[in-house]
Design a protein around this nucleic acid. Sequence first.
DNA 1: TTGTACGCGTTATCAG
DNA 2: CTGATAACGCGTACAA
Lengths: 341, 341
Amino acid sequence: MASSTLEQIAELSGVSRSTVSRVINNDPRVSAATREHVLEIVRRERYRPNLSARGLALGRTNVVAAVIPGAVDNILTDPYFPRLLHGMAMAADERDHFVMLSLGGPGFRHTVDEIARQGVVAGIVFSAGQVDDPLFEPLFASQTPMVSVGRSDDDRVSYVDVDNRGSAQQVASHLLRLGNRRVATIAGPSFAPAAVDRLAGYRAAIEAFGLRVDQDLIYEGDFSESSGRAGIKSLLEHRPDAVFAASDRMAAGALNGIRAAGLRVPEDIALAGFDDMPFATELEPPLTTVRQRPEKLGAAALSLLLDLIAEPASPPKRMILPTELIVRASCGSLQDQRERR
Amino acid sequence: MASSTLEQIAELSGVSRSTVSRVINNDPRVSAATREHVLEIVRRERYRPNLSARGLALGRTNVVAAVIPGAVDNILTDPYFPRLLHGMAMAADERDHFVMLSLGGPGFRHTVDEIARQGVVAGIVFSAGQVDDPLFEPLFASQTPMVSVGRSDDDRVSYVDVDNRGSAQQVASHLLRLGNRRVATIAGPSFAPAAVDRLAGYRAAIEAFGLRVDQDLIYEGDFSESSGRAGIKSLLEHRPDAVFAASDRMAAGALNGIRAAGLRVPEDIALAGFDDMPFATELEPPLTTVRQRPEKLGAAALSLLLDLIAEPASPPKRMILPTELIVRASCGSLQDQRERR
DNA sequence: TTGTACGCGTTATCAG
DNA sequence: CTGATAACGCGTACAA
């Protein structure tokens, strides 16, 4: 079942190996007639080029690495990474590339060294939750083309990200527009760029509304449900009329906390989250949130990476993907708010 | 930053390329002195072998594919696949291999063809939800060493699986031992081997208890929450005193349905699930269930696969992994059951 | 437009 | 124990 080689195809077609190679690689310098003939044999023999040989000759492979450090914690609970990978895999497949998985974290040996050296992968999609992940620098230093998922302040790095700031501002504005004036937020951890951006968006919304940002209405969580619960407990002391949680999980925790305090959502407190996780519709009431599409992020990252590989000398590329505000019952409606008064 | 080559290391060490190669590959036929000397240079130069070159020379790579067909649906909602991949990646890393991701499904071009041909990957871990996935046959036919995650009736295939039957029997027995006599089950789809096995375990438990299996107490769902809800609705007509759902998601749906019917868990109906998903502890009451460890499955699959690659002629290998019964409040206790009467 | 010849980095074979 | 040397399959100047 050994796959046929270029040489064999050449023999069967009655042409030289080079010609077959040109056909395979869509080199224009081959007559339509021979091309068609060769292609037929190629199809008949179900010929596939040997990736190792090609990689060796070309000096690079058509494999890119998806580096996800600290997967241990995140990957378990969150559909984010699978969706990201899915998007990457789709985009890679479309452009004749493969995705090699590299979960980082303690205990892994080959993550940095093997991958970063020329000859293994042509590029890297790096998806750390935080900007200063220890894996980043060595990878970057290896000069391997790399795209980060999630923005970086370093202006040498290419990245894709969702519009965290804009989206957060949009949610918060929505809460304000509904008549709420004491809009609190349960932010993500300050080491996560996404959290910082969402907090910035929240602030921007408040200020755009001519209100003052109240430190008492800001709680820093860690994206987890339990931190959402802890957050709301602390925030309730300052009587917010609305809460924007920077993740759906924290929103879920907050919802529990609000209930436990004997308050109702949205009648007493309007609530909004971020992510549009599957369970967002299952909550009681369904959660207003921001929908992001990790698949698109993954696809965009891969696309940028392939561009970068094609033109290694080009300046860093960035791409910010839009999100979608999903309004559900948890934030109440204008009408609800009027009835409240 | 081009990685150094064997040739360069040889020059720096004052030996031949062959000797360096032997050192790299732990070939015993090299003196301790030269070995140490060469190793030093290798370390200093941070030399890494070029995988393409090695793959070409060896006729095989150290890359294995994780083929997950139909990932589109599953991968989104379920932490199962990420955990499986995680386990695979860990095990692969440990044995100097890499995992290449290959999500199948419609629209993918390279899944079968490119992967199955010699030269791309050394082996395949195949994880379809169902036994007769259309991708399986062509992959199997390609003769590439392959391990299936989830058992198969085909005695030519190697696989790893959890002990679905035994675990199900254990849960059902637990429900029976608590005094329940009308133990119903919401089974998974009959095309899924895991579902079939869990149902078989359920039946075995009933019979081992000297009871008759009642068709009316069996509902076939599809592992989804909504099917759990539909299932319980149908089952309630036959007055079960306990329900074993073949997935936690179905159990969650059943829980909702039981509530909606004005009944209590576990007082009126004892409930148990399967999977020990993260949300199992969050339910009210916390769910009795079976814990499986997809990481272990992935690691086992990879391990079996590497063995198979090393000895392609060996007979199919199988491995059944144990699970753990996690007793929480949803099934009630002996004491609860007594109070009921 | 097509073919020839060489090199990519590694392993394996065969002398020494 | 060590060193040449020939593959492995493919891409690509260079020549025809």
